[in-house]
């Protein structure tokens, strides 16, 4: 019985950690599908986290907090979209600057909010203190968890089954061909980048309004980078990314529990494993699938319309 509760606790923590990573990764997946690489996930999550927290502290209105968090991260991502999509500058460089700017700007914005108490918190669907079976764990999750599942199904459906999604992928696969089909490459990429930012913002709001929940500098602590790794792990597919999120989330949840379970394994080394696994998967896929890792063909390459 005790063991069950512990196990369920681990599962619960896995789902919570995984949800955060998954939502950010899903957003990045959408952005990358359009051919834009945005390395600024860490910065975008930060912006979403701090703005959501600020609104929550000041208004106590959860819905508004989530909305503002998502919107500001999306607006922040539009900076990357402007620089890379409209001005055709290097995506790697712009993404890295976005990270630095996001982290420092959110620290400045949130300076007065460090240590502040939240008047509200994102609730669970059903409150169960110590869930004792899988069913109880699954129904006692945070609302954001169910939203994440909905977003996963919706994203997979939109990308594969709708005209909008197929066109988005077309732009990311071959922007010149997409252009010749009359699709607006710039607009598509701009939208995809902002949507990706919005997802990161949602992950950020979840971080400060439920997962942790408080605000402090650099509290994203590398989760944005994990999200980037997850997209690769998931082969740019929503469902496989979700599996990856569970694995990465599991490891995050496992680390603080290792000692209580009596394992000699260093928690710090366990934390490295997802990255190592991702690298191995990437290499194996590249070798055995002839480079077909699932990455959009046009990723990172700016689109120019031929003209004189």
């Amino acid at each position: 019985m005790m063991f069950d509760i512990q196990l369920m606790g681990l599962l619960n923590a896995t789902l919570q950690a995984g949800t955060l990573l998954f939502i950010a990764a899903l957003g990045e997946l959408i952005t990358e599908k359009s051919g834009i690489l945005n390395l600024g996930v860490e910065g975008m999550i930060s912006i979403g986290a701090v703005t959501g927290f600020m609104v929550a502290v000041n208004t106590g209105n959860l819905f508004l907090s989530v909305l503002i968090g998502v919107f500001s991260a999306s607006l922040f991502a539009s900076l990357h979209a402007f620089v890379t999509v409209i001005l055709k500058q290097d995506q790697t460089v712009s993404g890295l600057i976005l990270t630095i700017l996001g982290l420092s700007l959110s620290a400045l914005l949130g300076k007065k909010y460090v240590g502040k108490k939240l008047p509200v918190k994102i609730e669970s669907l059903i409150e169960i203190d110590e869930p004792s079976n899988i069913f109880e764990v699954l129904i006692s999750q945070n609302y954001i968890f169910y939203l994440g599942i909905f977003l996963m199904v919706a994203t997979a459906f939109v990308l594969k089954k709708t005209m909008f999604g197929r066109r988005l992928e077309a732009v990311g696969e071959d922007s010149r061909a997409a252009d010749s089909m009359g699709l607006n490459v710039n607009k598509t990429q701009f939208i995809a980048t902002c949507v990706g930012g919005g997802f990161s913002g949602l992950a950020g709001v979840y971080l400060t309004l439920s997962y942790v929940p408080y605000w402090t500098d650099n509290m994203t602590s590398g989760r944005g980078w994990i999200a980037l790794a997850l997209v690769i792990f998931g082969g740019w597919k929503p469902y496989r990314t979700a599996v990856g999120a569970l694995l990465f989330g599991f490891l995050e949840a496992l680390v603080p529990r290792l000692q209580t379970y009596g394992f000699e394994l260093s928690p710090y080394l366990v934390k490295i494993t997802p990255y190592a696994i991702t690298i191995i998967i990437l290499i194996v896929l590249t070798i055995y699938k002839g480079g077909r890792t699932g990455a959009p063909s046009n990723i990172g390459i700016p689109f120019f319309r031929e003209n004189r």
């Binding site: 066109r167 992928e169 077309a170 696969e173 061909a177 089909m181 699709l183």
Partner: peptide, 19 residues
């Protein structure tokens, strides 16, 4: 030089256009 999307099906290439 063709303007077709290699990883997409014939159908996608023929139907994704706005027109």
């Amino acid at each position: 030089e063709f303007r077709l999307i290699n990883n997409f099906s014939i159908k996608d290439n023929l139907t994704l256009s706005k027109s």
